[in-house]
Design a protein around this nucleic acid. Structure first.
Lengths: 106, 106
DNA sequence: TATAATAACTTACATAAAGTAAGTAACTAA
DNA sequence: TTAGTTACTTACTTTATGTAAGTTATTATA
């Protein structure tokens, strides 16, 4: 190995390269959401979603808030650091609209 | 499932969420490179690199060129579609420099 | 009082993806 | 004839993810 890649860049792309992470952040950009909503919106399994949300919380990207109602309501939302992914997501959107044809997907 | 996410966006983020894909594209942005160079630059295993390069060729993102020297030289480079990832990579770089501290990385 | 419902997980197990290291092909140099 | 070089491929192991059932906590319903 001979890695000359900036470690900060590498860390960032490692976060985004984790399966589901990008979609979770993208989904939360539309506002705070519950576990089950994210799960069905992006089609991730509960097992992995649970794992990812913990990781993202540890990274300071996602915030978890408990509302002691019945049944309990838990909302996930983006921190400032999480919201800062917006320009990047816009770039992905822009790229996809320019370079991907609807018919050639899948 | 209830997916209301734009399929083009989803496809784009699926490409980027594949482990190593982003780093391979980033690495090739600095110019055409050989298999072994990419392998050691980003630290991916040959087995997976081989797989990813084929995928990226099929997506029209990477181009493979054979030079019949001895030993044979094969160069991988980005197509126009591949180069178009540059602004996106710049955004990742920008984000990482703003939001990641060097000391907190691994 | 017992049962059911709901949300957010967690656990156990199965399948898929990625890592490791040895092997192959094609060619030249020693 | 043997060794070296590059770009892979193959067989096998380890890790990640998917699936589906189970758990916890709380209230509503029969």
């Amino acid at each position: 190995m001979d890695k000359s890649i900036c470690p900060r860049f590498e860390k960032a792309i490692t976060i985004l390269s984790q399966r589901w992470t990008g979609l979770i952040i993208y989904q939360l950009l539309s506002g705070p959401q519950r576990f089950g909503t994210i799960e069905s919106a992006i089609g991730v399994s509960g097992r992995v979603l649970s794992e990812r949300l913990k990781d993202l919380e540890n990274e300071g990207i996602v915030k978890r808030e408990v509302f002691p109602e019945t049944p309990v309501r838990i909302e996930y939302s983006l921190t400032e650091k999480g919201v800062s992914f917006e320009p990047l997501m816009k770039e992905i959107e822009k790229w996809s609209q320019h370079w991907l044809e609807p018919e050639e997907i899948q």
